[in-house]
Nucleic acid binder design. Structure first.
Length: 547
RNA sequence: GGCCUUGUGGUCAAGCGGUUAAGACGGCGCCCUCUCACGGCGCAAUCCCGGGUUCGAUUCCCGGCAAGGUCACCA
């Protein structure tokens, strides 16, 4: 068969020679040990936690090693394309502090671009043509129906499904038959003529999983779809070779197609990059673990974390603790060091899928947030409220001096032991709502209404906003004594039956009356912030409701 | 179903021939205390199962079993 003629018929025209491409995309001049990594999402507009997870790993490895991380857009499937998706990806990753050096819409060095696969059609065709000329690829005219019929037959016969060996009918077409179909204008794809033997197994060193057993590929996978656009597999081999990727960290769902990729690199005459297959983030679903799913799990979406107001650094820290098992220890030891100084290593990456644990994230969030100054917190909350808050919540930020007093109370004094009440911006803004309006009561009084009312009345009689906290509390204790509540907690604990309750109950009544909540930071300070007038107004209002 | 991967407390995990089997989150209890939060102290809870190898296996080998992934002109 005249393969040159066939190649010309299938992909007519002059294409640059492989050597030309090698010259166009020369090996990168980087230091020893520098890794070139990438993130290569498809532009669905949906960038999720799994993408972030793998992105952070790639980014850390590239930059720890003095290498490069780039962003490539795998837009070979138009069905997946969503307008504005690339911007969304870029923004989401920037929000979580993942920095690219090159790539789609990134700027930087464009030597190795273009970064959209659709713009790289020529190079894929050039190499597909070369494979055809060498007899390593051939046209396939099978229809979707024929292929699925084949699959069914194979399944029924308990054979391995797919297009290979004797089942690869177009692989065995004669020259005459090929031209006949071509002349008839039948659509076709280009398939790899696999030379692998599945009986041959070999050991492959995965950077994360270690040695794995790999079976040679014998599937005649399609490399160019009927529209002339490459499949993922083919584009991966061509792009990662010419973009000079040295290390591919990707999800373990790709492990199964590794044999295909290995054969493709070899057929193309390219050296393989190193691979590291990263475990996926899992979630508990009833009794079993499963991969986080786009449809079922809102927390998979990165948008979820913004909407809920998670501090981006907290999400990053959590990803890092899952990614490198020794990170948590390091971070506890050097909380002040920049995250970039952590010696991230591929070898410390986990082999098995981790369950995503919202409790853990929340704990990290509280710690991260507690390290912010009141001013930083204000900025963070304000940004969130402007994007996601209600009109009322946006209003909280009109008087920043007032809000700063609130935050200083709710966070504790800078430098000293801090409170850790805030988990997310959304939750924090809800938590401080009572500083701006009376609001609904979220907790009920534990003591009888009559006692509560007596406490509120007595408080109103002696309350003076000029009192310092000591005097203020003395007065609260006096009310307790006067109404049959224990002012001394030790005495109360010794014999609780002798009292209606304790100062704790008295304080709680006041707390609920003023804030609507049973649990708040220091009540005296709250009253100071609210002011005497507002404090009295709220207590009176509480009495009126009863009346 | 075939193939690949993985199995240490509820979760994330360290340990990789001899350990009282770290630590963190969560749970529970106590202390502190006007509540909460913080902080301190403590408790419960783990080596998937069965065979080997070995003086000795969580650690090594072989079988099960379970879980996950994957079998497209999607990435």
């Amino acid at each position: 068969m005249d393969l040159k003629k066939l190649a010309e018929r299938l992909l007519p025209g002059e294409y640059p020679a492989p050597a030309d491409y090698e010259a166009l995309y020369p090996p990168r001049a980087l230091g020893k040990g520098a890794e070139v990594t990438r993130l290569a999402p498809s532009p669905t507009g949906f960038i999720h936690l799994g993408n972030l997870f793998v992105a952070i790993a790639n980014e850390r490895i590239a930059h720890r090693s003095g290498g490069i991380m780039f962003l490539r857009i795998e837009d070979t499937d138009l069905k997946r394309k969503v307008e504005g998706a690339v911007e969304a990806v870029k923004n989401a990753l920037r929000y979580f502090d993942v920095r690219f050096d090159e790539g789609a819409e990134i700027g930087g060095d464009d030597t190795y671009g273009p970064w959209y696969q659709r713009q790289r059609a020529e190079i894929y065709r050039a190499f597909a043509k070369k494979l055809i000329e060498e007899g390593r690829a051939y046209p396939c005219f099978c229809t979707e129906e024929e292929l699925s019929a084949l699959r069914e037959k194979q399944t029924a016969e308990k054979k391995v499904t797919g297009y290979y060996g004797e089942y690869a009918v177009c692989r065995h077409l004669s020259e005459e038959e090929i031209y006949q179909k071509l002349d008839a204008g039948l659509p076709y794809v280009i398939r790899l003529r696999s030379q692998g033997d599945p009986a041959h197994k070999f050991t492959f060193r995965d950077q994360i999983k270690g040695d794995i057993t790999v079976t040679e590929n014998d599937q005649d996978v399609v490399i160019l779809k009927s529209d002339g656009i490459p499949t993922y597999h083919f584009a991966h081999a061509v792009d990662d070779h010419f973009m000079r990727t040295t290390l591919v960290i990707r999800g373990e769902e790709w492990l199964a197609s590794l044999p295909v990729h290995l054969e493709l690199f070899s057929a193309l005459g390219f050296a393989c990059p190193k691979y590291g297959h990263n475990c996926s983030l899992m979630k508990m679903d009833g009794e079993t673990k499963r991969k986080l799913s786009k449809r079922k799990d809102p927390e998979l979406s990165l948008e979820f974390y913004r909407r809920e107001g998670y501090f981006p650094r907290a999400v990053k820290v959590y990803m890092l603790t899952l990614l490198n098992s020794n990170f948590e220890e390091w971070y506890a030891k050097f909380p002040e060091k920049p995250l970039e100084e952590f010696p991230f290593s591929v070898s410390k990456m986990g082999k098995s899928g981790a369950l995503f644990d919202l409790d853990k994230l929340n704990d990290i969030s509280k710690n991260e947030l507690s390290r912010l100054s009141a001013e930083e917190m204000l900025c963070f909350l304000k940004d969130w409220a402007e994007a996601f808050g209600s009109e009322e919540e946006k209003g909280y930020f009109r008087d920043e001096a007032y809000l700063l007093r609130v935050l200083n109370l709710c966070m504790g004094t800078a430098g000293k032991k801090r409170r850790k009440d805030f988990t997310t911006a959304k939750q924090a803004v809800g938590l401080i709502a009572y500083f701006f309006r009376k609001g609904e009561r979220t907790d009920e009084y534990r003591i009888p209404a009559a006692d509560k009312n007596a406490i509120l009345r007595a408080f109103l009689e002696t309350f003076d906003e000029g009192d310092d906290s000591q005097v203020w509390f003395q007065k609260v204790k006096q009310i307790a004594d006067m109404l049959g509540f224990a002012s001394d907690m030790k005495a109360y604990k010794a014999d609780s039956s002798a009292y209606k309750g304790s100062v704790a109950d008295v304080a709680e009544a006041l707390r609920i009356a003023v804030t609507g909540r049973a649990n708040t930071p220091d009540l005296w300070t709250i009253m100071q912030i609210l002011g005497g007038e507002e404090t009295r107004r709220r207590i009176r209002a509480e009495l009126e409701v009863q009346a």
